[in-house]
């Protein structure tokens, strides 16, 4: 890597560096702006008089006595009980990831090792379901859910999210498993494993980066979902994303927009931590070659 980089001309080097910095700024700006603004009052962040108020916090100083305030966070987390939504999100996300990874690894392994044609058709059908917009599924579910009194509860949402997510996990994991040579299963079985033990002791350890990567994608799907959670959850069971939307929806009361901004920052922060924490697995999972022996 470093050898190849050294061979580039200094001009190209400078250009590439400048481009990267520019690109980084453009990409990071909205987030940084929101992060900064979340510590201001609404009058500053959405200032009609002077946009630079959002930077210097003129009104924030007038209203609270300091250039930064935690009012937005306090309002969202304590007053509006955003922590409940965070807890619900945690429950939904963990359940969705665990369930879809469990079925995904077992099913993906079976499909990748199956010599029969039906494996292929199963995957094609899964792909078709994946291609549909989630809302088409939800609108179909809505009426029966009301009638059977299933609407509004977390488990219902979890099941629907798993159903939407499963085809994708299955596809991704099958692809990962196909990359693992069959010799590994076979030598494990001759060494004394049942097929399941071979899967458990030999294949899964090799698959780990793939499982992490797929798990992360499932996580993001559940974490970011709006369509399903907004439609299927009652107000007291709301997860974070629809909760933010509801902050925005009630602009009559001043400060709610700032609650939304503060909770947007709260929602984004864990993603950074997550990606930083798993970055090695993600990279090696995406460059599937690392899976091979």
């Amino acid at each position: 890597m470093s050898i190849a980089a050294n061979r580039r001309s200094p001009l190209l080097q400078t250009f590439l560096g400048a481009f990267l910095i520019l690109w980084l700024m453009v990409a990071a700006f909205p987030f940084l702006w929101t992060l900064w603004g979340s510590f201001k009052v609404e009058g500053d962040f959405f200032s009609k008089a002077d946009w630079s108020n959002a930077i210097f916090g003129t009104l924030t100083e007038v209203e609270t006595g300091a250039p930064f305030t935690l009012d937005g966070y306090y309002g969202a987390w304590v007053q509006e009980e955003f922590w409940r939504a965070a807890l619900n999100t945690l429950i939904v996300v963990v359940s969705v990831v665990v369930i879809s990874l469990t079925f995904g690894t077992l099913g993906g392994y079976a499909l990748s090792r199956s010599p029969y044609r039906y494996a292929f058709w199963l995957l094609i059908i899964a792909l078709m379901f994946r291609a549909m917009p989630p809302i088409t599924l939800v609108s179909g579910y809505l009426l029966p859910f009301f009638q059977w009194n299933l609407w509004g509860h977390l488990p219902t949402t979890i099941i629907v999210l798993v159903a939407i997510n499963q085809p994708f996990t299955l596809w991704m994991l099958t692809a990962f498993f196909r990359n693992i040579p069959k010799d590994l299963d076979e030598s494990a079985m001759v060494d004394g494993c049942s097929q399941f033990q071979a899967f458990r002791h030999v294949i899964i350890p090799v698959m780990w980066p793939g499982v992490i990567t797929t798990g992360l994608f499932s996580f993001l799907l559940a974490y970011n979902d709006f369509a399903v959670t907004a439609m299927l959850l009652s107000k007291e069971n709301q997860t974070m994303v629809p909760k933010i939307a509801s902050f925005l929806g009630t602009t009559q009361t001043k400060g709610n927009v700032m609650f939304a901004v503060a909770s947007v920052v709260s929602v984004t922060a864990p993603l950074f931590v997550l990606v930083l924490f798993f970055q090695r697995q993600i990279v090696s999972g995406l460059t599937a070659g690392a899976v091979k022996g």
């Binding site: 040579p181 010799d183 590994l184 076979e186 030598s187 001759v190 030999v202 090799v206 022996g293």
Partner: peptide, 15 residues
């Protein structure tokens, strides 16, 4: 109850 040496080794890469 056989033991086999595989032509392609079949070693476990994580161990």
């Amino acid at each position: 109850d056989v033991a086999m040496v595989f032509q392609s080794y079949g070693l476990y890469p994580t161990m």
